[in-house]
Structure formats: C-alpha cells, structure tokens
Design a protein around this nucleic acid. Sequence first.
DNA 1: CCCTGATTCGC
DNA 2: GCGAATCAGG
Length: 166
Amino acid sequence: MNWTDERVELLKKLWSDGLSASQIAAELGGITRNAVIGKVHRLGLSGRAKAVQSTAPRPRKPRAPSHPSMVFRTAGATALAPVRTVDLDIEPIIQRAPRPMLEPVSCERVTIMDLRECMCRWPIGDPGSESFRFCGTRSNMGSSYCSYHATIAYQPASDRRRRAVA
DNA sequence: CCCTGATTCGC
DNA sequence: GCGAATCAGG
C-alpha cells in the first residue's frame, strides 16, 4: 500500500481531527497504526494540540437478561420456549421494581396486550432502551409464586391521554 | 492487559 | 521513505 497524495491528505485530515493512529489505519485500510505513526512523523505532523479522548469510548457490553426466566431452565432441564414479545409504541412506567424470582416460570407467555393485573409480568431490558419489552405469563401465578413480576403501567407514547395499566 | 504516540533501525 | 519492532506512558 503506497502513500498516494489522496491517502496522505486523508491522513492529515484524520490526524488533525484527533483520530488515533489505529483509527486512521482502520480508516485508510490495509495499513497498520505503526505505518500511520511513521508517516505522521515523516510529515512532521506529530504533536497534536489535543488527544481527543483519553478515555476510550468503548462500546458497552450487552447486559444480562433482566428476568431470570430468560435463562432459567425447568426442573426437567428443558429449555424454556423463547419469550414472545410485542413491539409497541409505549412509554412504560415501572411502579415497583422487579425483585429476584423465587421459582422459574414455565408457562405460556403473553404479550403486554393480554397482560392482566393477576398475571406474572416483568419488563425485559432497560427502560429507555430500544430493546425494552414487556413480557408476561398467561397463568395466574400471583406474587406468591413469582416475586419478580412488576407492577407496571404504560401509556402510548403518541397519545398520553389514553393511559392504560397492565 | 488494553490502549496510546514516539522512537529505532533494517529494508 | 517505509513500517515492524520496541519502548514508555495512561
């Protein structure tokens, strides 16, 4: 890979923009960060005004499932059926935070549309995240069996007057 | 250990 | 001139 004028100009730009050598190397492609640094020095570009972010903006690791039933197995060591979820345009409000569940729940899952007050239900994921969902079971397990279910309310984000409680 | 830039030195 | 190897630092 040779240093064409085009690549050198891009290198200058990215370097002045504060990108790290490895980032620039990835951007240019087919080159190592050492090559970038070497070139930068040969061009006399070293000594940037500011090293952008000393704290690396690392992507966050995905969190663990928010409900034990996502990972629990039944007594027979049979994996639970995949949780059925529904993608709704809702604005959830958790009125009581979930606590660890006492027992694994193995029963039919329902969407938030079918949730009732008596049902075991819980949020999935972090409120505010795109992947946030509600899930519940159709059986009436109640809090004596499942201490994890949360008392939740939701309202359509598009129409907050039509507030409903699940 | 991960990352960073700086430097050296054989090619 | 190039860049891998190496170094020093956060």
